[in-house]
Amino acid sequence: MSKGIKPVRLKYTVIGRRSTLLSIALFILFILLSNQFDAYNQSQLANIATLLIAVFSITLLTGASGQISLGQGAIMAVGGYGSALLVTRLGLSMWLAFILAIFISALFGLFLGLAAARLSGPYLAGTTLVMALAIPSIAVRFESFFSGDVGLSVDYGVPPTWLSNLVGEISIEQWSLYVVLPFTAIALFAVLNLSNTRTGRTWRAVRDNEVSAALSGINIARTKVIVFVCASGLAGLAGALYGFRGLVAPSVYPTDLSLTLLTAAVIGGLRSIGGAIFGTFVIVFLPDIIEKITANIEIPETIGNYLPSLTIGILLLLTVILNPRGAAGALEHARHRRKH
């Protein structure tokens, strides 16, 4: 009996150690990168660290359990409004508000998940898309509470003196990165561990074949709801961090945000966490890169404005056509080929 259990236990500790190391590595990588960057790119890096959490939520939802959401941006809005209201109305500390935002949006995800468990594929996609449109308009509808189109002004505040004393002068941009990064690292740790445990395997079974998963005794509906709760918690955290860049308002969480997040996850590879990181870098930096490339070429402004979205659309199509498993899938494929 003990013979059977031992290797399993061993595997768990290895996974735990590996994910801890990877999370710390990500943290250090971002810090090192930010030291090389100017202020603008530092804030872009903070954006990446924030959106990465939201893209992870799609990796969980779509990649690991096969449910598609076009409304992760709306759940980000829930987290954003939740935390901003806690800070502005109740005067809570920002850090506490971020953590509470996870629970608020997870609770929201529970309700959503109860509806989603009855839905599959395109139904879910459409319903979440409707939600992406409707939720920001709730802010306008209940203007006195949510401040309507104007939104709620919130920010990361100023870095504490002990930190400045420790590492020297900290710019606003660097501070925003420092605030976000611990959450990103924890999110990475959580996602890495989730996908390697029994829970993760259950999710994948539901994704690949609902009937055979049900026959193996998996409660499909409950599994789907749990995935939704976890993914919503992540998205809500991302939304809170995203809002505290300065403003929580309907315009901060447009429908396009949901689609952009999905694009990042798809381009990188829906089933790969490394892919999620790659995809997020692509969507955040792509407009800058295109601008740099086209800076020397004379093109009309109208074309320039639409080049990033055109490129992203084409990338999305190419990914789906050439390799639906995204960049991560392509990499794996290449590695596989070299071996043989």
Binding site: P122, Y306, S309, G313
Partner: peptide, 28 residues
């Protein structure tokens, strides 16, 4: 990927979103 039941419906949805993005940008 397409052997996975849920992905068979998800991938076309993503593809159609790609077309939407391209058409919008081209119109712009």
């Amino acid at each position: 990927l397409l052997n996975s039941q849920s992905m068979r419906t998800t991938i076309p949805v993503i593809a159609s979103l790609g077309i939407l993005g391209v058409l919008k940008s081209l119109a712009g």
